[in-house]
Computed example of a mutant assay.
Amino acid sequence: MKYVFVIVGVGGTGSLLARDIPKLILHQEHRIVLVDGDRVEEKNMVRQSYQEHDINENKAIALARKINAFYGNRCGVIDKYVTKDEILLMLRKQYPTFLPVLIGCVDNDKTREILEHTFHQLDRCVYIDSANSEYEGNVYVVAKEDGQRAGHLRSEVYALDKDIHPTEKSCEAQAAAGNTQYMVTNLKMAMTIIEHVSSILHGEIKEGVTNVRRFEEVHY
C-alpha cells in the first residue's frame, strides 16, 4: 500500500508534523504534500519549524525544500489556500495509485469544510483532523474503504463555526486572528498525529477521537 500524506496547514502543529513524518517513510514509496498559503514571519520562529532565512517565503515551499534536501525528493507543495476541489483534483492527477491520508492542521472551520468535502468525494481515504487551543486539543480520525466508513467527522459531532475562508480575510484580519498557543501543546498535537500515522503505516487505523490535555492523552 502506498500512502500520500496531505498536510493542510503547516503552522504550529503542521510544520512540526511535516518535519518528522519523513523519518517514518524513509526508503519507502509513500509521499507527502504540504498545503498552505501563508508566509513565514519572524514570530513563527517560536513554535514552528522555520528559521530566519525562511522569513517572507511561503511556508509550504520553505518546509518542502528542507524535507527534500534531507530525505530525497518525496514532498510536493500547494503554495496557496485551497478552495473546494483543488486537493481532490491534485490527488486524482498526481497520485492516482496512492491511498490519501488527509491531515488537517488548520485554524478555521471553512477549510475543515473543504477537507470534509474532499473526504466525501473519495472512495478510499483516511482523514485526520487536529484542533487545539492554548493548552489542549483533540484529533478526529475517520476512514473510508469502498464507501464503508469508520469513525466520525468533526462536523457530525458538533456544529462547525461559520467563519470565512483565509482568502477572504484582509492581511490585518489574518494577523489579528492568530490565537495564542503554547509550544508544548503544538508538540503534543503533532506527536499525537505522528502516532496515528505510525499506526496507519503498520496496518492499523485507530478511528475515533484522541483528546490531548496538559499531562494527559486519551483515545476513544
Rank of each mutant, 00 (worst) to 15 (best):
Q94K: 08
V4A: 02
Y95K: 15
R31K: 14
V212A: 15
N179K: 12
T180I: 06
I114P: 06
A176H: 04
K110S: 15
V126A: 11
L102A: 14
V4Q: 00
R31M: 08
M183A: 15
I67L: 09
K84I: 06
R213K: 06
T185F: 14
V4L: 03
G12E: 03
F215Q: 10
G203N: 04
E136A: 12
N186I: 03
H117G: 13
I67F: 09
V46F: 08
S133C: 12
Q181W: 10
G203I: 01
Y220T: 05
Y3E: 13
R124A: 01
L102I: 10
S198I: 09
A64K: 01
T13S: 12
R154Y: 07
L160V: 07
M90R: 01
Q51K: 13
V10L: 01
D123Q: 15
N73L: 13
Q28M: 12
V8F: 00
Q28W: 07
L102Y: 01
G11M: 05
G147R: 08
M189I: 04
I78K: 01
V139P: 00
I164W: 11
R92A: 02
R213E: 12
I164E: 10
V184Y: 13
V126H: 05
S198T: 15
E207W: 05
N58V: 02
D36G: 00
K2D: 10
V197N: 13
H219N: 03
N179P: 07
S133H: 12
L16C: 08
R92P: 10
N68R: 09
I205S: 11
D107N: 04
